[in-house]
């Protein structure tokens, strides 16, 4: 076989690189198979695609004071930078939801972060935030104020090897049940739904 001459070789290498680029474009634009929970019947579901390149599918579940947002993102591997866009977007949804449901004057503070969290058979990253509100306790003139943890915002992200997709789950769960005992049931149901998420 004869070696390729200068121009021919250049053309062959350029064409090969063009093919590589096309393959990568096709991969990132390919629709994802959205991660879904086993049972979310009591939640109102809203879903859509918010990015076509890379392909990102988003599903939002709401039920009273509980919220779950899920983004499935086409990625090659699991660097956190790959899904930071979806992470920030869902985090913003969760914070807006918490302020709408628990009061605009709530404080949101990070409580924990973990990089090797075992979730759905994968190694995930997990962040939790507390939603605090200053509440007056007692009657005047003896009343005192106290920071009460009303809710928890959680974010879990992992990479699905078999799908070449990353999944980000962000949730808001109620955490203060004194005035509304029914919220405890909602909290359990929310965490059951979160725990049942798996790669498609």
């Amino acid at each position: 076989m004869r070696p390729l001459s200068g121009r021919r070789r250049l053309a062959a290498v350029a064409s090969a690189y063009a093919c590589v680029m096309l393959c990568y474009c096709a991969f990132f634009a390919a629709p994802v198979s959205p991660a879904a929970p086993l049972d979310a019947f009591s939640f109102v579901v809203e879903e859509g695609v918010y990015s076509h390149f890379p392909h990102i599918h988003e599903t939002l579940y709401t039920n009273g004071k509980a919220f779950i947002g899920v983004a499935t993102i086409r990625t090659i591997s699991a660097p956190s930078a790959a899904y930071s866009m979806a992470f920030e977007r869902l985090d913003r949804y969760a914070e807006d939801f918490a302020r709408e449901q628990y009061g605009v004057e709530v404080d949101i503070a990070i409580e924990s972060s973990e990089t090797g969290y075992a979730f759905s058979g994968h190694k995930a990253v997990r962040y939790t935030y507390g939603v605090f509100k200053e509440i007056a306790i007692g009657l005047p003139p003896f009343e005192t104020t106290q920071d009460v943890r009303l809710a928890e915002i959680g974010a879990i992200a992992w990479f699905c090897n078999v799908d070449f997709e990353s999944v980000v789950v962000v949730y808001v769960r109620p955490a203060y049940f004194v005035d509304e005992p029914a919220l405890q049931e909602l909290d359990i149901r929310t965490m059951d739904v979160v725990a049942s998420f798996a790669c498609h």
Partner: peptide, 15 residues
Amino acid sequence: LDISIAVLALASAPL
């Protein structure tokens, strides 16, 4: 294998 994963695997084939 998902078709998109097959495409990703084939990306190294031209070079």
